[in-house]
Design a protein around this nucleic acid. Sequence first.
DNA 1: GTAACCACTTACCTGGAAGTAACTATGCAT
DNA 2: ATGCATAGTTACTTCCAGGTAAGTGGTTAC
Lengths: 121, 121
Amino acid sequence: MHIKRPEKTRPECIQNLLALRDSLELLGGKWKLLIVLHISCRPKELLHFKKLEKEITGISAKMLSKELKILEENKIVTRTVQNTRPVTVTYTLTTYGQTLIPIADALQQWGLHHRKIIKGK
Amino acid sequence: MHIKRPEKTRPECIQNLLALRDSLELLGGKWKLLIVLHISCRPKELLHFKKLEKEITGISAKMLSKELKILEENKIVTRTVQNTRPVTVTYTLTTYGQTLIPIADALQQWGLHHRKIIKGK
DNA sequence: GTAACCACTTACCTGGAAGTAACTATGCAT
DNA sequence: ATGCATAGTTACTTCCAGGTAAGTGGTTAC
């Protein structure tokens, strides 16, 4: 008699869809992962507020400020005031925030591939 | 003499931020990754439109229909009309769509962890 | 013939995401 | 005292993702 293979239903993954909702709620917007990836990619000299604003094409000071505040509240970035003149503020990823890098990278790679599939077609 | 270590700036990743924007534009909404994960987790019998609508808590027929259409246009899901009475329509992930599963899983895991860090605190 | 089921679609509406522009506060330079 | 730089904030506005509710078209069951 033929033993039925279990359907590959991955039941474990369904239980915690709330977790995916949480992630999407926090990170699903237009800017947050972009900011995280930017910070992860840049040398220290480019992590000032003004530099980020210039380098992240299209973002406004208002959005950058707002998003950074949320990221800070969620322990993803650290805000550090430097005693330069005029004062500058640098933003860096926390160790915890660095756990987002593989995810952002993966999404980026996927997007790169997707371009070829969809737009290159 | 001490040899200076290169800053870990990962310059390669900055070039293609457009790709991340693309991914976020397509997948950054409230429902798409949730739908993908749902389809990936469910046995065939639960992949009908009506079943999906019931199982994905909070989604409306309108949103489900709209999102599935976009996913189909992007070659992520396949729409199959079954000749049952009344006709049912099943949605499955394409091979290409399956490349999103690791990403959705990773985001889900991250969200699970994040709950503990932020809300459990 | 009417009621029920499936798979949507259409019309209408609203809250919040996001944009623009101007403004604040602080300190330095000339 | 005027101008410039950093790091934001505030006020005003627009737009659209997403919600609600009702309707459509096809088929079967009674």
